[in-house]
Design a protein around this nucleic acid. Structure first.
Lengths: 336, 336
DNA sequence: AAGCATTTTGCAACCGGTTGCAATAATCCG
DNA sequence: CGGATTATTGCAACCGGTTGCAAAATGCTT
């Protein structure tokens, strides 16, 4: 069936070790035998079995990529960058979809059965304990898009959600809004809590500004739309900081449907800056998460931890910035 | 380090074979030894190494999932369904991102090194030769979202693009549009060509309707917007059949920006029915691809081919249907 | 209790590679 | 050219499992 080491060795008239060595970086083979082996390998169409070699080397170059965000368009970009980044380093992503799974143990067991070299948990909604379960099992792990912690148990890469909340508040203040609100994602998500913390923290210094809070049931278009529809029936704020871009677009839809317009009647600022946010018929003012940097750092960390497993857990947070578009009125208008 | 078969065997006081058999479906083990083994395994936290066993069984339960569509939101749904569907059958997707790759040989080699049991090529833009390269290499393969062929070399699952083109034309005719156009994706993509064929085929029976054709440079928002902007400066049609939903949204953006409105001034019908199409502020009339069925069938086929490798190549096409929303005027208005 | 059919079990070889070690070959040096 | 040094090579054991086969144990029948 498949052509093996032995076949090549026979045809080249050398030992199996010789063949193995020609395909092993930095092993000792004479140019002569190498040539013979390569010729035979080419003729037979041989390429070494990565799984068999992993048995002795202990490395599979497989990386578990675990996520539960298969409904947020941002994550298509995330998967794109992760797969490309891993491939560029000769690593292979084994994708795990956690959509209706909550217990980490199944994933841990499965990924250990496949001897993954490391795991990347890419999710802002999974609890820290999820990634920690991998660490517990002795698998190098980093939690991407995770929550900041001063004494982390695992590597965490992401953004400073508290700072983002503050940044959003400041953006609204600078534009002269006097009645603002936080329209968060699911209340229990730690990212939501952190952002609320920053948001209200910044506003505490501005007692003249009226603030309120509510939560959408999910980071989704529908949830954003439903919640904004509800808010509009009461006494809406002048501007909202929404949990993420998808939620924001749902809110925009509700605003439009109510015959109001943005930013004239109500301002919206989102978070993520997914590709779609720049589409001219959406044109969402939002806070940009530098996902390429986050993903690059995540890969660096997991690779680093594979090389030095005892490496100290580390948190890397990347700065975000407001991307000015069309759903918030310009700054100068609101100058006091 | 990791706990192995031998450790369990020692602790349970049985042979290694006994342990192996307890973890092998349908092997002969007495209840007594099974109990001993399970106890020991539990105490040690043992779970069998899938890769080691694949060496002898010849099955890895790894499936290569190959795609180059990491910028079309539809494919997030596609990846979600594929990963879930594969997981449900105990298979593991090894994701391969082909974004800037055109030569299949690298992917073939890599996936063979990992002894994948099968490969799913999920792409509407890759040529048939890509999937065929896997077949050539003896790897069971199915091309999802591929092109119809009467004598296929590999399994193909998708939609009948010619029929979709026809369906789009009929939808426009039924709504009384007298001047219609095809706004395709990249001209060289076979899906584009097939749809154009169906579109113009249906319109041939209606010589009273004026038709024209143009192509966007990619299946992307920007490309759709650019092309529609160009079209609007000339003598635009009353309605357009766009290559896909993303392209359509780009076109909508251009129409809106030109101060025109949809469907009053210009009608648009897309293709795919990705989740976003139903968002009320997009509300795109489109042709629905039944992606869940396509993906289910793809998985069935790849699994079937793994079991019977000599299975005859097969093409499965699923019917599409028009999803009535807000970017085409209603049917009755246009009744002759 | 003996005789026979069935299960259960362990041995050992094997899956496709890697690698330490000792033997062999090549190279260098005076 | 001989001896010392270094590079190359093959053997054999091993990685963590599976499996055919024959021996041992069990169950059944009379």
């Amino acid at each position: 069936m498949a052509v093996t080491l032995r076949d090549v060795a026979d045809r080249a008239g050398v030992s199996r070790s010789a063949v193995s060595r020609t395909f092993t970086e930095g092993a000792s083979v004479s140019p002569k035998t190498r040539a013979k082996v390569e010729k035979a390998a080419l003729e037979l169409g041989y390429s070494p079995n990565a799984l068999a070699s992993s048995l002795t080397t202990g490395r599979t170059k497989l990386i578990g990529l675990v996520s539960n965000n298969f409904h947020n368009p941002l994550f298509l970009e995330v998967f794109d960058l992760f797969t490309r980044g891993l491939q560029d380093r000769g690593l292979r992503p084994l994708l795990v979809n956690l959509s209706n799974e909550t217990d980490p143990q199944n994933s841990v067991r499965m990924l250990r059965q496949y001897s993954v070299d490391g795991v990347i948990v890419a999710s802002s909604t999974l609890p820290p304990s999820f990634a920690e379960a991998f660490k517990q099992a002795g698998v190098p792990v980093v939690h991407s898009f995770g929550r900041f912690s001063t004494s982390p148990n695992v590597h965490v890469v992401g953004i400073d959600n508290v700072a983002c909340g503050r940044m959003a508040a400041e953006a609204l203040i600078a534009r002269g809004y006097r009645k603002v609100a936080f329209l968060g994602g699911p209340e229990k998500a730690t990212s939501t809590q952190d952002r609320a913390l920053g948001f209200f923290g910044a506003l505490r210094e501005h007692p003249e500004i009226e603030v309120s809070i509510s939560y959408a049931s999910a980071y989704s278009f529908d949830a954003g739309r439903v919640e904004m529809t509800r808010l509009l029936m009461q006494d809406p704020a002048q501007a909202y900081f929404c949990g993420d871009d998808v939620l924001s677009i749902g809110a925009l839809s509700a605003i439009e449907e109510a015959g109001l317009s943005c930013p004239e009647d109500i301002g919206i600022i989102g978070l993520n800056d997914m590709d779609m946010a720049r589409w001219q018929n959406i044109d969402l003012t939002t806070i940009r998460q530098p996902i390429a940097e986050i993903i690059g750092a995540s890969i660096d960390l997991v690779v680093g931890t594979i090389e030095r497993p005892d490496r100290h857990p580390e948190t890397r947070l990347f700065p975000c910035r407001v991307v000015e578009r069309g759903t918030l009125r310009p700054v100068h208008q609101g100058a006091a």
